[in-house]
């Protein structure tokens, strides 16, 4: 821990407000929701910004009035208290006006939500299964199925070696998907509830054991997009990242063929994932055991 890190941290705070106004500041530390790489994520981002600005404006008006009053109507400036204490007209007004604002917010929100629920006519269906603590991806029509596990070495987590660029957000086998195709994603889990979330795709969906949920995405830009499990799922909840690699269709087909060839040679049975280390078995030293 160097002093410069602390200084950097505190300067980050002071510049935070400024950067927020400047919009999608893409510094080392992100401040805002990513705009994402799908039409849905763009809609969600726009919705988020709209509501945010409405809140900022309301906040400025309300707090402005309050601080103006705090400055002017103070006893030390000789203010004499008025005695008014009710007005039905005003009460009705400040009930109705917020209602109208809310309706204005609800319209775009409803539209976006309806689009998010439209899983029709997908080109590809991928089943995502949450395990304690890794993900399994199953390309249903292709018979390709594999686990995706955290690739960050323990030595980095335990601070023995320097942390890599994608610390905790790297996996051995990323989910490879084609760009420009509508992909339907089914989520479920094999033990406890997990939640599959890649911020750049604009949504997360819970993975519930015994039940199946669906969502969809259509990635427009090739790239690598990273996310994490978003529902507390036990000891290593923080260590089951998601990496989505979006590639052009041709490259995807090539990758798929390669995976199928690999699958032809028998690998470890997928029905029996690595021995689960039950939480109850691992003794926890109270008072802080250093890893």
């Amino acid at each position: 821990m160097s002093i410069s890190r602390i200084a950097q941290g505190s300067s980050a705070l002071t510049s935070a407000a400024l950067l927020l106004w400047s919009g999608g500041a893409h510094a080392e530390y992100a401040l805002n929701m990513p705009r994402g790489v799908t039409t849905i994520s763009h809609d969600v981002y726009d919705l988020h910004m709209q509501i945010f600005w409405i809140c900022v404006i309301i906040g400025m008006v309300v707090f402005g009035v309050m601080f103006w009053s705090i400055y002017h109507h103070r006893k030390s400036r000789g203010a004499v208290p008025a005695q008014f204490h009710e007005s039905t007209v005003i009460e009705v007004l400040w009930t109705l006006i917020p209602m109208l604002i809310l309706i204005a917010m609800a319209v775009p929100a409803t539209k976006t939500l309806i689009r998010m629920y439209d899983t029709r006519d997908a080109d590809l269906t991928i089943k995502v299964t949450g395990y304690q603590w890794r993900w399994q991806y199953d390309y249903l029509d292709e018979g390709v199925k594999f686990f995706s596990t955290l690739a960050t070495p323990q030595s980095q987590i335990r601070n023995a070696t320097a942390k890599g660029e994608h610390y905790l957000l790297e996996v051995d086998n990323p989910l490879v998907v084609p760009v420009g195709k509508k992909i339907r994603i089914l989520t479920t889990a094999a033990d406890v509830i997990h939640s599959w979330w890649v911020p750049e795709l604009g949504w997360k969906k819970d993975a519930v054991p015994g039940f199946i949920n669906e969502a969809w995405t259509e990635i427009q830009k090739p790239g690598v997009y990273r996310g994490q499990c978003a529902e507390l799922c036990g000891r290593d909840h923080g260590f089951m990242p998601i990496v989505v690699k979006a590639v052009p269709e041709a490259e995807f087909q090539q990758w798929l063929a390669q995976m199928k060839a690999q699958n032809a040679t028998p690998t470890a049975s997928d029905s029996n994932p690595r021995t689960m280390q039950s939480n109850t078995d691992s003794p926890t030293v109270v008072g802080g055991q250093t890893l």
Partner: peptide, 14 residues
Amino acid sequence: EFVANLNLGAPWEF
């Protein structure tokens, strides 16, 4: 579409 899942600790092929 038909999908088969195994809960953990279910030693089947399915």
